[in-house]
Design a protein around this nucleic acid. Structure first.
Lengths: 255, 255
DNA sequence: CGCGTGATTGAACGATTTCAAAAGATGTGG
DNA sequence: CCACATCTTTTGAAATCGTTCAATCACGCG
């Protein structure tokens, strides 16, 4: 049962590095000119409230495959992604991994229960995040109800996505899962105003398999089949063209 | 692939009844004497804030198998369970069902995205709920930051549980899923201060199967096997004695 | 007592995993 | 710029776990 997931475990946290790697430090934009602000929780803030947020934010960078935090770590930080892609995963003691989701720019993460993170987050690509000290951020939540509403809104949204994923994991076939995955990532990329033609899949087969509850082999065969029936075309550099979205949609819903 | 889940669909919404059935109207306690208050989001409120909440609450009752709301319904209400058990489910067009969770007294539900419910909720047993008009409840969220923090806290908790469930659905074997389920329900019942010895499972095999991503047959066989190895004992009236929690724990983690 | 529903059990089938190997990519150093 | 080593992806074949189909059992009720 998914023992192969253990390899995913290794891939997701290859070297055990924790903590940001400040490398190739590019321009750090002030909140006022942040490209993801219109999409992120900070969209709820007025200019002066944004100033209060800007005072407590720190920009961190992680290289691909580095870990942002581990499950059960003390949860003293909150994050918003400004560039790159990250994965959220949970592990079984025997190493099997489940990827609970992928995070894209504007996504907020780090909410915890009982003072500890409930999952591990690691960088799929090189990653830039806004970092907040939890206590400072929570003070702002109290001060700015609109910000808290926004966080609650994103949290509800994430819960709805989680339930959609449960439906996928519990009741969809391998091909249905893969079709759902492609449409989901496509939608996520589009919402960020980026092109999904071709669609870039920065996560490897192991990440995708661990997300869909499949082995890497079945995942790979799924790509092959979708290509065979003309729903997609695999390109080089982890890129895919979604040739027939209607077909993908039908497959994803088990029609 | 889980076609049998369709039967669960029928069970969860047997007669298509929507709307509360006010039957056997028992005593309705004021918020001040509500038995679930210490556990629910309302625990965050001061006595006078509780008065404001009491002004907008209405008690509703549903008979077992009635539907509280359907996925995609306009989300104009929020609820807190005061007695009984409910299920949260999602459906595929072909009728396959995934139960995303079970709700127990003190659980808050009805959060929505984009104005619509993202799932269906129906009564597993006879059910009593506190009903709030969304707009009125949201006004209270703005007025009482502690209430909103409490809702956000429950929402985070629910998200963590959803991720745990993804791990179960994506990476656990049938027996591991069933052991996890029993321990989870046991924990939920205990948190409410009720006895879990024996443990009452008000949901039928179809509900459990749809929750665990299994067929009713595999679910039933799982119970049989757990009994065979001495981990549990099946009693009459949908009751189970958890004889060896250590064994269940080990099984649930795939050890 | 017979009926209807839900739970259990049995046997055959099938989708996905597992194991194994080949093919493609990526990166390093000479 | 190429050769080599490593890692990822793909492909093939066998094994496995869970589903499906079908029958039996258990319980509650008229």
């Amino acid at each position: 049962m998914g023992t192969r997931g253990a390899s995913g475990s290794k891939a997701g946290n290859r070297d055990g590095n924790i903590g940001p790697t400040v490398s190739g430090a590019a321009k750090i934009l002030p909140c006022g000119r942040c490209p993801v602000r219109p999409l992120a929780v900070c969209a709820a803030l007025s200019p002066d409230q944004l100033g209060a947020l800007a005072k407590i934010v720190r920009t961190l960078r992680y290289a691909a495959h580095e870990t942002v935090f581990h499950e059960a770590d003390e949860a003293d930080s909150l994050f918003i992604i400004t560039s790159g892609v990250a994965s959220v995963s949970k592990y079984l003691p025997n190493g099997r991994r489940q990827v609970a989701g992928f995070l894209y720019p504007s996504d907020f993460f780090g909410l915890a229960v009982a003072g500890c993170y409930a999952n591990s987050v690691s960088a799929v690509t090189d990653l830039t995040v806004c970092h907040f000290v939890r206590t400072q951020f929570e003070a702002l939540l109290y001060a700015f109800p609109k910000l808290e509403m926004s966080v609650l809104g994103q949290s509800s949204h994430e819960l709805a996505e989680a339930q959609e994923q449960m439906l996928l994991l519990g009741r969809k076939s391998a091909l249905e899962r893969l079709a759902s995955f492609l449409l989901m990532i496509s939608g996520r990329v589009r919402r960020n105003g980026q092109s999904d033609s071709p669609l870039w899949l920065p996560m490897n087969r192991s990440d995708i398999g661990d997300y869909l509850g499949l082995s890497t082999e079945t995942t790979s065969r799924g790509f092959g089949r979708l290509e065979q029936i003309g729903a997609i075309q695999r390109l080089r550099d982890a890129r895919v063209e979604l040739l027939d979205r209607g077909m993908l949609q039908d497959i994803s819903e088990g029609v």
